[in-house]
Design a protein around this nucleic acid. Structure first.
Length: 511
DNA sequence: GCCGTTTTCGGCCCGACTGTTTTCAGTCG
């Protein structure tokens, strides 16, 4: 088992504890241990063998035991043992971050598939549509034996107070999440999958269209067997003479009309993603060394990665002085030959209170990637903030506006800003907007991303990773992009290593 | 969950800056 796998499991455990509303320092302990493991310079198995786990920063007796268990068995029984009593309503999660929802379903899915009488399981509902937060999880289950499946579901030790309505089960998981299970016989699986995935209006509209075209009643009526036996959702959309509409689009946001007009976007896909343009290292406030971050990017198969540490004003995050920045550029050059990946030197430069940029233009001119972000004075008036951000985008060296609204899901509202004006100036100046993929940022969100695309603005999907594990958050940003109807051509970092620099530097060459 | 002791539980990253300053809690990643 690789260090990375062990770290991922610890990270997952932390996320699940967080779903349960556990002590945040306990959660942080798991995250800290995950970082310690992933940044080790030796194999974790060696450390286990030589009983040196507790020498790691942030690893005590309890976590040492758990890490040992993971290394030796590949599992973590603590997750199984988590209290099998339902949480009090006050501790229930009402909104769950997409990242947590996906982590949770990854944990639960294999358990569901293994239940007697169950043959197929899929996440449906808001999580399958990849909404930024979800209120609960829904699963569609194909069953070979309804009675047996119902019984085994009811007997699952982590599922509490199951309430059945026909073959639908409402329950609460020990981890503090409300779940709805839709049980159907195998012949009806695809239909149920579809019906429980799209928003209500999407599903109703589609059902009407199919009724008109074919006379068929596509909506499954509880307790009634259905004549339609579909093998895939493609077949279902084909009944309406339409191509498959991706789950992320099924919000009745014009996707049906677009499909009818043959103008459905060919959504950007993980395979299109060529590299991360916003990551941090321990030169500023990142947890891992540049080498570790670069190696993790190589492991993900990227063509390039941009090192974009904080600028001098952001003291709290150990922002780089101009001298340190220049040393970092030299270090990147020295590292380049050792790796089969392009390492771009960049910066996440602060947009100061008045919209000026926290580094001189002659310094920015020597960097490959310049992201400008607001990290201070969030409470400016709407007019001031708008002017501030727009002024920053006027800078010919600012290629990307980082996390444009500054929101933290569940923690901090976005700052006041006139987004229409930001989009106008971004388009005018040729500045890209970032979809920041941090689980609690997802900033810009799906709807702004769609407006950006309509305005002809390129969008960069970045992770803002502060550790190797966070590079994987790219999938969340990608989900937002897809929800925003973005295609490969709309996304900056789908360009190859050969092309990306020229594209990034188009703006400065105009000046 | 870890840590560091005032050895048994309380606090828990970092530090400069802000403010219709009065003396320190809140803010930023």
């Amino acid at each position: 088992m690789r260090n990375r796998d062990v770290a991922e499991m610890l990270e997952r455990a932390g996320r699940i504890l967080s779903l349960r509303g556990e002590n945040r320092y306990r959660i942080r302990a798991y995250q800290k241990a995950a970082r310690a493991v992933v940044s080790l310079d030796e194999g974790i198995d060696v450390v286990v063998k030589e009983k040196r786990l507790q020498q790691l920063e942030g690893v005590g007796s309890a976590l040492a035991e758990k890490i040992q268990e993971i290394v030796e068995t590949g599992t973590l029984s603590m997750l199984e043992r988590i209290e099998t009593v339902s949480l009090p309503p006050t501790k229930m999660n009402r909104t769950i971050l997409l990242a947590s929802a996906l982590t949770f379903s990854t944990e639960l899915l294999p358990q569901l598939v293994a239940l007697p009488g169950v043959t197929q399981v899929q996440v449906v509902g808001e999580a399958r549509r990849r909404r930024e937060t979800v209120t609960g999880l829904e699963f569609a289950l194909a069953v070979s034996d309804m009675a047996e499946a119902k019984e085994s579901l009811g007997a699952h030790k982590h599922l509490h107070s199951c309430r059945w309505e026909d073959n639908k089960c409402f329950t609460v998981h020990s981890f503090g999440i409300e779940i709805t299970f839709h049980l159907v016989v195998e012949e009806c699986f695809v239909q149920t999958l579809w019906q429980t995935t799209g928003s209500v209006t999407h599903v109703q509209k589609m059902a009407m269209i199919i009724k008109e075209k074919t006379g068929q009643q596509i909506m499954k009526v509880p307790g009634q067997s259905n004549a339609l036996q579909l093998l895939s959702e493609e077949e279902l959309y084909a009944l309406a003479n339409l191509p498959l509409i991706a789950p992320e689009l099924r919000e009745d946001g014009g996707e049906i009309e677009a499909a009818q007009a043959g103008q459905l976007p060919l959504l950007v896909d993980a395979a299109d993603y060529k590299g991360d343009l916003h990551i941090h290292t321990d030169w500023s406030d990142g947890a891992a060394s540049m080498k570790k971050m670069v190696e993790a990017a190589v492991e993900l198969g990227y063509e390039y990665v941009a090192i974009t540490d904080h600028s001098r004003s952001l003291k709290i995050a150990k922002g780089l002085s101009l001298e340190r920045l220049s040393q970092q550029q030299a270090f990147i050059k020295s590292l380049q030959d050792k790796y089969n990946i392009r390492i771009f030197s960049g910066i996440e430069v602060d947009i100061l209170d008045d919209g000026s940029i926290d580094a001189p233009n002659e310094v920015l001119a020597n960097l490959d990637v310049v992201i400008a972000s607001v990290h201070s004075a969030f409470r400016q008036s709407r007019a001031k903030m708008t002017t501030r951000i727009c002024r920053a985008m006027q800078n010919p060296y600012v290629q990307i506006l980082g996390h444009a609204t500054g929101r933290l899901l569940g923690k901090r509202e976005p700052y006041e800003v006139d987004m229409a004006e930001v989009l106008r100036v971004a388009a005018m100046t040729g500045t890209s907007l970032e979809i920041n993929s941090s689980p609690d940022r997802l900033d810009i969100n799906d709807s702004v991303a769609r407006r950006a695309k309509d305005a002809g603005i390129a969008v960069a999907i970045n992770t803002d990773a502060h550790s190797q594990l966070e590079l994987a958050n790219m999938l969340l940003g990608l989900a937002m992009a897809r929800r925003g109807w973005l295609e490969k051509k709309d996304v900056l970092n789908t360009s190859s290593a050969q092309d990306i620099l020229a594209i990034l530097q188009k703006k400065r060459r105009k000046h």
